[in-house]
Design a protein around this nucleic acid. Structure first.
Length: 508
RNA sequence: CGCGGGGUGGAGCAGUCUGGUCAGCUCGUGUGGCUCAUAACCACAAGGUCGCAGGUUCGAAUCCUGCCCCCGCAACCA
């Protein structure tokens, strides 16, 4: 039938709290999922958590828990967060699921022809019992600050995956768009990166340096490192390899990832799939990062934006709106509270919310709430569809707002309030008025349809208001004004129209 | 010579591949209109040497050359 589609999101490391980056992942996948579902497709939408590794073990120890108990406590944060952003995932996987762990070992064995033993060399801290990257070691001047000991250069036995064997196949798949990397410039970037070939990658650690993870089959002294453990989640969540239903959804139509993990998803992951003889995903959608006021979000700078706060203060639809329209799907975006609030008040409040209000109010006032036959709106929605297909969600929303704007213009040009003055003694005027308002409703219903993937609650509000043929009061306004970060124009003008400045940010 | 992205009215961007119809859009600002509406909506206006310097061309934001500046990335960080 070709009706089954599958979309995935990166699984965050469970140590830590959900942040804006995760939200972008979930949002993009959710928008796509709802869009496809609206078009009659059956979609599975995966999310999950990565729960193995030293950092988890360390954090757990700090809290006096065993690693699994710690993960059990933490993964809930992500499940709750996914609900909070309104994501409609159908599946959730934890890398500590027994089925997953078993599948990972199965995969390891399947990949044996491409696995060889090698040496791993790196900077090691005996206090942490962990390796550090060259960059970290350099920035710390070669000494571990926690243990006051110099990092040691050590060599240990590792298993390696011969990813290099698949260089040609991977390059070919990317170049021919059999595995499409979107946007195009990311594709070029990656091809440039592997021009000398895909590098083999270390896929295990001695048990002594990686305590919390899946054992290597047949070698209890080694534990499977993150790649072979985490990446296969996209398959195992579907039941791979033992439940054949996984084949109903794989290969994934879209895998949503951040720009920082492209190289793993375009290199190591395809190598594993090819090694197993499993099809490659059709599309990797690479999104950018969210900056704040032009600067990288970082804990040390203290400019981290908590998505929970945004949602709590402005509502989930407002959050989804800003992050899908003003954070470009395929590029980095910029968040500031001022920008966010301006978009909320002007675009959501003035343009859309007010439009819904003015139409329903006229119908209530002039026609006692009776709408009559709303004609099918006939706006050309090709640009919207095209943008959705090209995974440029922000551009699709631009199209919706063009509709909103057009309707506002239309209403101003036909002036229903003028027409209404004659409706009681002029049959034509009465009919004309009804026609105008029904046309407006038709457009609004279409707008609501187009908003379903993005702002499901708002779409429902509009549908509920107009759908039944009579105005149904929803008992609340859409997007009432909020002025926390921008000047309130309704406030009495003071000297220079200034509003009391925000308290300077406390130093953290 | 590491790789990549970018420099367009106050802000954020589109346009650059396929030179002219390109100087466009949103926000902000000003003026006017309207009154159905969430002080909203609609119209109009002000404001730009399209990073700099050369070159190609009848004609360049758009092609070529050189230079300046900003920002990411550089392997396990969404």
């Amino acid at each position: 039938m070709g009706k089954n589609l599958y979309i995935t999101t990166a699984i965050p490391y469970v140590n830590g709290t959900p942040h804006v980056g995760h939200a972008v992942d979930y949002l993009l996948a959710d928008i796509w999922t709802r869009y496809q579902a609206q078009n009659g497709k059956r979609v599975r939408f995966q999310a999950g958590t990565d729960e193995h590794g030293n950092k988890i073990a360390a954090k757990a120890a700090e809290e006096g828990l065993d690693p699994k108990a710690y993960a059990d406590k933490m993964y809930i944060n992500f499940q709750n967060f996914i609900k909070k952003v309104g994501a409609s995932n159908t599946d959730f996987i934890r890398t500590t699921d027994p089925h997953h762990e078993g599948a990972v070992q199965w995969i390891w064995q399947k990949l044996l022809p491409y696995i060889y033993k090698g040496k791993y060399e790196g900077w090691y801290c005996t206090g942490h019992e962990a390796f550090f990257t060259d960059k970290e070691v350099e920035s710390l001047n070669g000494t571990c600050p926690d243990h006051q000991k110099p990092f040691e250069r050590i060599v240990e036995d590792n298993y390696y995956l011969k990813a290099s064997a698949f260089t040609d196949q991977i390059r070919d798949a990317i170049e021919k768009n059999k595995m499409r990397i979107v946007p195009e410039y990311r594709k070029n970037e990656f091809l440039e990166l592997i021009k000398d070939g895909v590098k083999d990658v270390s896929i295990s650690r001695p048990k002594k340096s990686l305590s919390w993870g899946v054992p290597v089959p047949g070698d209890p002294s080694q534990v499977i490192y993150v790649w072979v453990d985490a990446l296969p989640n996209y398959l195992t969540v579907l039941g791979f390899p033992d439940h054949p239903e996984w084949q109903d959804y794989w290969p994934a139509e879209v895998q949503v990832i951040g720009k920082d993990i492209l190289r793993f998803h375009a290199g190591i992951w395809p190598a594993m799939l090819l090694g197993m003889g499993v099809a490659l995903p059709k599309t990797l959608l690479v999104h950018g990062h969210v900056n704040v006021g032009g600067a990288k979000m970082s804990k040390s700078v203290g400019n981290v934006v908590d998505p929970n706060q945004v949602i709590d203060e402005y509502g989930v639809d407002a959050f989804r709106y800003f992050f899908s329209r003003h954070i470009p799907t395929q590029d980095d975006g910029d968040f500031t509270w001022e920008k966010f609030e301006t978009a909320y008040n002007t675009e959501l409040g003035n343009d859309l919310g007010n439009l819904v209000q003015r139409v329903s109010s006229m119908i209530t006032r002039y026609q006692s709430g009776v709408i009559g036959d709303a004609p099918q709106a006939e706006h050309d929605m090709q640009p919207y569809r095209l943008a959705m297909e090209e995974l440029k969600f922000n551009e699709a929303l631009d199209c919706v707002w063009a509709n909103v704007r057009n309707l506002n213009q239309y209403i101003d040009s036909v002036k229903p309030w003028e027409v209404a003055k004659n409706k009681d003694n002029d049959k034509d005027a009465e009919e004309h008025l009804a026609e105008i308002l029904a046309t407006a409703v038709g457009t609004l219903l279409q707008v609501a349809d187009l908003l379903v993937p993005f702002l499901p609650n708002t779409a429902k509000y509009i549908h509920d208001t107009f759908e039944s043929g009579a105005i149904k009061d929803q008992g609340r306004m859409l997007f009432p004004k909020i002025y926390k970060h921008t000047a309130d124009p309704r406030a009495p003008k003071t000297q220079g129209g200034q509003v009391a400045k925000e308290q300077p940010a406390e130093q953290k």
